[in-house]
């Protein structure tokens, strides 16, 4: 089975709790970059980064413009910008119009990451009250990436995972507490 090279995660309403549940379960030896787009509504993502860093098994940082998507690090999209992955696996930002009413938009992150990593990408769509991420999930699956959607029954807000499943389907649809183990299995040698 092909070893995956990167993980992107999208979430909105209920996202903080969901991430605090998933991130501690990730194996500290995961040698892939993990990139999160979480709608927070706040002007500053620092608080989210600090909260996640307390629980995660890997370092959590705000994704830095032009910097490489370092493996073994959890990168969080800054507020007010779309976060993109360039073909050379470095981050870029844009202030283009909102996509799916959001900036940062999960669709934008997923689509550009799919362009960069193709079938090496795993995309995870978690709880949320809007349908951002659904089109991104379509792009990920079209590129041969692995789509993992949180079981809507276990989601604080089920609109986002349901929209993802309807638009793209999924390679796995798991309850929240099974997601970290699946990611470890897909990424560890």
């Amino acid at each position: 089975m092909k070893k995956r090279q990167a993980i992107v995660i999208g979430c909105s309403a209920g996202g903080l709790t969901a991430l605090q549940s998933v991130l501690p379960g990730l194996d500290a030896r995961l040698g892939v970059p993990i990139i999160i787009c979480c709608h927070t509504g706040s002007a500053d993502v620092t608080i989210l980064v600090d909260l996640l860093d307390r629980h995660a098994s890997l370092p959590v940082v705000e994704a830095s413009e032009r910097a490489p998507a370092d493996p073994g690090v959890i990168h969080v999209a800054p507020s007010g910008y779309h976060l993109m992955v360039e073909p050379n696996f470095h981050f870029s930002l844009s202030v283009d119009a909102k996509v799916a009413y959001a900036r940062p938009s999960i669709d934008v992150l997923f689509e550009t990451a799919a362009d960069a990593w193709h079938d090496g990408l795993i995309a995870v769509l978690l709880t949320g009250a809007n349908s951002d991420g659904a089109q991104g999930l379509v792009a990920v699956r079209r590129a041969g990436g692995f789509a993992l959607v949180q079981d809507p029954l276990t989601a604080e807000a089920d609109v986002m995972p349901l929209a993802g499943l309807e638009a793209a389907g999924a390679d796995a649809c798991l309850p929240l507490d099974a997601i970290a183990a699946k990611l470890n299995e897909l990424c560890l040698p």
Binding site: E86, S92, D96, V108, T112
Partner: peptide, 9 residues
């Protein structure tokens, strides 16, 4: 121009 945003535009 950075490829990812150019492509989107």
């Amino acid at each position: 121009y950075a490829p990812a945003s150019l492509k989107r535009r």
